[in-house]
C-alpha cells in the first residue's frame, strides 16, 4: 500500500514539473492553458488519491473526496474563463507553419 502511495506522489511531482515546463515552452495562450489545465489537475489529483490511500476508510477520506470533486469542477472553469476572455479579445491561435513554404 505504501508503495502505491509513493507511486501516486511521484506521479504528482512528475506531472507538476512537466506542466510547468509546458507553460514555459508552448507558443501562445491556448496551448499554455492546455498544458497548465491538464497537467495541473492530474498532479493535484494524484496527490489527493495518494492521501486518500494513506488515510484508509476514515471520515478524513470523505472530506478529501469532497475537496477533490470541488477541485475537478473549479479548475476547468478557471482555465475556461481565461480561454474565453482570450477568444473574445480576438487572439488568434498559434498554427504550425506549413512545411512547403520554407
Amino acid at each position: 500500500m505504501i508503495l502505491l502511495v509513493y507511486a501516486f506522489l511521484g506521479m504528482g511531482i512528475f506531472f507538476g514539473v512537466l506542466g510547468n515546463i509546458g507553460v514555459l515552452r508552448f507558443p501562445d495562450v491556448y496551448t499554455r492553458l492546455q498544458a497548465s489545465s491538464k497537467c495541473g489537475v492530474t498532479s493535484l489529483l494524484s496527490i489527493f488519491i495518494a492521501l486518500m490511500l494513506l488515510k484508509g476508510l476514515t471520515p478524513m477520506t470523505l472530506r478529501i473526496l469532497v475537496i477533490t470533486i470541488f477541485f475537478l469542477i473549479s479548475s476547468p472553469v478557471a482555465s475556461h474563463v481565461i480561454g474565453r476572455r482570450a477568444w473574445e479579445q480576438g487572439i488568434a491561435p498559434w498554427r504550425k507553419k506549413p512545411e512547403s513554404r520554407d
Partner: peptide
C-alpha cells in the same frame, strides 16, 4: 500531454 510537452509536436485548431 507530457509527450507533447517533451516533443513540442502539435497542430492546434479551433
Amino acid at each position: 500531454m507530457s509527450l507533447a510537452v517533451i516533443t513540442a509536436n502539435m497542430n492546434p485548431r479551433i
